[in-house]
Design a protein around this nucleic acid. Structure first.
Lengths: 194, 194
DNA sequence: GACTTAGTTGAACGTTCAATCAACAAGGAT
DNA sequence: ATCCTTGTTGATTGAACGTTCAACTAAGTC
C-alpha cells in the first residue's frame, strides 16, 4: 500500500469522488482542492484546467472497469447470465448504500454535459462500449437462441440499468430498479425458451 | 392565437426551451432574459429565483404531457402497442431533428440535479409517473398475458427510452435508439405469445 | 557551491452569475 | 385630483468561479 498517494493521484481521486457525488458542473475547483488537500497551483501544474481533469477521470474509469467493477462483481459467479445480474447487483448495492442518491458515474456525466468536447464525448462512449462489450461476451456464453443479437441485447441491459438508476434516484425508491431487473430477467427467460 | 403572449408566459417558454437545449445549470438567467426579451426585474417580479422558474417549467410539462405529447403522438394510431411505439417515435424524431443532441427534457434535468429540492424532485417524479401511467393504460388494452405486470412493463419502456436517448446522444448515432426499440418490440412479442 | 528541474504555494485577477432595488408607467378605484 | 395595484426597467451588487503567476522549496547533477 502507498503510505501516501502522489499529489496527482489524490487530485484525480478527489475529482472522481466529487464528480460522482455532486456532478461535474456543481463541483468547484475549490471543492476538489479541499478534498485532495492540495493548492490550486499544483492542480494547474498537472492539468490544463477542469476539463482536462474530467478527461483524466474518464480515462481512469475506462482503464479501471475490469479490475474495479467487472471482476469484483462476478468473481465467484459461474453462470454467464448470473454474472450479468451480479454486475447489475453492484449498481443496486451502490444505490442502497447511498439511500438512492448516487448511481452510475458515467451516465451521470453523459446526461449532464449537453455539448461536450469531442474528446470527452468519445471517452464517455468508450466507457459505455467497454461495459456493453463485456456484457455481450457473457451473453454469448449464455446459450440463447442462435439468431439473438447479443450486442443489441447488451445495449438493452445498459439502457435498463441506466433508466432504472434514474427512476430509482428520482423516486428515492429501490423498487424501480428491482422491477427493471425483474423485467430484464423475464426477457432473458423468453429468449432462452425460443 | 395570442398576438402577444404575456411576459410571464414568454419567460416560462424561454426557460423551457433553454433548459432542454443547454440544461438547467448551463442556462443563465441572462440567457433566459435575452431569449424572452424581458428585463431581469420582470423575471424576479414573477419568480423568486431560478429554481422557482424550474418548478414552473416542470409544472408546464406535467400539465402539457397529454395535449402536447401523448395526443399528437398517437392521434391517428389505433392499436395500443402501436400507440406506445408512436410515442417512442416522437422521441426518435426529436433526436433525428437535432442531430442526436437533444432528448427527453425531463430525463435531462433528472440526472443533472444531484441533490434537488424536494419540490423539484417530486415534480420530476410526477412527470415520470404520468408518462408511465399513460403507457400502462395502453398496455392494459393490448391483450398481453394475464399475469403481466403492466406497470412494471411501462416503467421498463421508460427505462429503455431514456437509456436509448442517452446512448444515442453520447454516440451521436440513432442506431442505438433503434436497436433499443427493436429489443423492446421483441420483448412485447414474447409477452403476447405466452 | 552553482545550476537545473520538478513540484508547491496562495494571493490576486477577470469574468460570470443570480439577485436586488429604486424609479417609473398605466389603469382603475375613491 | 389622488392613490393603490400591477407591472416594467436596467444599472448595480457581491459572491463564486476557473485560472494565472511570481515566488519558493527540495532534490538531483556536475
Amino acid at each position: 500500500m502507498d503510505a501516501q498517494a502522489s499529489t496527482r493521484d489524490r487530485i484525480v481521486q478527489a475529482a472522481m469522488e466529487l464528480f460522482w457525488r455532486k456532478g461535474y458542473g456543481s463541483t468547484s475547483i475549490a471543492d476538489i482542492l479541499e478534498t485532495a488537500q492540495v493548492n490550486s497551483g499544483s492542480l494547474y501544474y498537472f492539468f490544463k484546467g477542469k476539463q482536462e481533469l474530467l478527461v483524466a477521470v474518464l480515462e481512469a474509469y475506462r482503464d479501471g472497469i475490469g479490475p474495479m467493477l467487472l471482476e469484483p462483481s462476478w468473481g465467484e459467479v459461474e453462470d454467464p447470465v448470473d454474472k450479468v445480474f451480479a454486475l447489475l447487483g453492484t449498481y443496486r448495492r451502490l444505490l442502497v448504500e447511498t439511500d438512492c442518491f448516487y448511481g452510475c458515474p458515467i451516465g451521470s456525466v453523459a446526461l449532464e454535459l449537453h455539448e461536450p468536447d469531442p474528446e470527452v464525448r468519445e471517452l464517455i462512449a468508450a466507457n459505455f462500449a467497454n461495459w456493453t462489450q463485456a456484457v455481450k461476451t457473457r451473453l454469448d456464453e449464455a446459450g440463447l437462441a442462435e439468431k439473438t443479437d447479443t450486442l443489441a441485447l447488451a445495449e438493452m441491459v445498459l439502457n435498463v440499468m441506466e433508466g432504472g438508476v434514474m427512476q430509482t434516484r428520482t423516486h428515492r425508491d429501490i423498487g424501480y430498479f428491482d422491477r427493471a431487473l425483474e423485467q430484464l430477467r423475464n426477457y432473458l427467460d423468453c429468449l432462452k425458451k425460443e
